[in-house]
């Protein structure tokens, strides 16, 4: 549900950039959505598609979304792993459990304009 307000945030940042650089058209917007951000990627994309139609600069632009793999950090020894599950025992120290590590942000990576 809050995907729409996040998409609105994205559009206003992109529009500010376009105005700052005196660009007439935004071609491509690249975003990274962290695996723990709690964002439903399809709803976010839908929000972008609807809202980008409202402005001449963003109309028809392509939204490119990168979704990095989840990573986990041992609560005890601090080592970071990929391809594991939350709450798994640490493969290294065998003592701690793995907790989500980073990746809860949505980051505007780049904007292509002309």
């Amino acid at each position: 549900m809050h995907e729409l307000s996040l998409a609105q945030n994205l559009i206003s940042q992109v529009l500010n950039l376009a105005r700052e650089h005196q660009a007439k058209k935004v071609l491509r917007v690249s975003v990274e959505i962290g695996p723990f951000s709690g964002v439903v990627v399809d709803s976010f994309r839908f929000g972008y598609e609807v809202l980008s139609q409202e402005h001449g600069e963003t109309r028809g632009s392509v939204l490119e979304i990168r979704e990095p793999e989840q990573s986990f950090r041992c609560f005890s020894c601090g080592h970071v792993f990929n391809g594991k599950k939350m709450g798994d025992p640490c493969p290294d120290c065998k003592e701690g459990t793995l907790v989500a590590w980073g990746g809860d942000d949505i980051i505007l990576l780049s904007v292509e304009m002309e």
């Binding site: 945030n9 950039l17 949505i106 505007l108």
Partner: peptide, 18 residues
């Protein structure tokens, strides 16, 4: 003096303002 535009690297969190 028009600024050159093309791909602008931003790398900013969407919720940075919040």
């Amino acid at each position: 003096f028009k600024k050159e535009i093309g791909v602008i690297e931003v790398n900013q969190r969407l919720l940075a303002a919040n």
